[in-house]
């Protein structure tokens, strides 16, 4: 079973992701922000990471940079959640090393498609 790490400060969004992902047979691990995400990554090796951008303590962009700088974790595909198809935000996410993105509110089918597109 593939494990997905979701990093989002919104409980609502975490729950929606969890539901959609578990319904599609993924194992879901949740983190509340970038700092928490980094902590969680010490203990698991997810197949894909889905992260929000705007978060307290450590935002999604910095989180991605930290993951990409980690030799052990750098190859994990990371999908960014964006609220709109904001080109600037996507560009910044790409620059930080995001593999792809998911537009909120997400269509569960597209979510799974996006994951399958990046998951090894």
């Amino acid at each position: 079973m593939k494990t997905i790490l979701t990093v989002d400060d919104s409980r609502t969004m975490r729950e929606m992701l969890r539901r959609a992902l578990q319904d599609s047979g993924f194992n879901v691990v949740q983190a509340e922000d970038g700092v928490h995400g980094i902590e969680v990554l010490q203990g698991i090796d997810p197949d894909v990471i889905i992260t929000d951008v705007n978060m307290p303590r450590m935002d999604g962009l910095q989180f991605i940079e930290e993951v990409r700088a980690d030799r052990e974790r750098r190859a994990i595909p990371i999908l960014v959640l964006t609220t709109e198809s904001d080109a600037e935000k996507k560009a910044r996410a790409r620059a930080a090393g995001a593999t792809g993105w998911i537009v909120k509110p997400f269509d569960p089918v597209k979510l799974i498609d996006a994951i399958n597109r990046v998951a090894a």
């Binding site: 400060d9 919104s10 929606m16 978060m55 909120k104 997400f106």
Partner: peptide, 13 residues
Amino acid sequence: FRAVHSIKGGAGA
């Protein structure tokens, strides 16, 4: 900003 942004995100869903 994040507070409003989050409300918007959830509301959209």
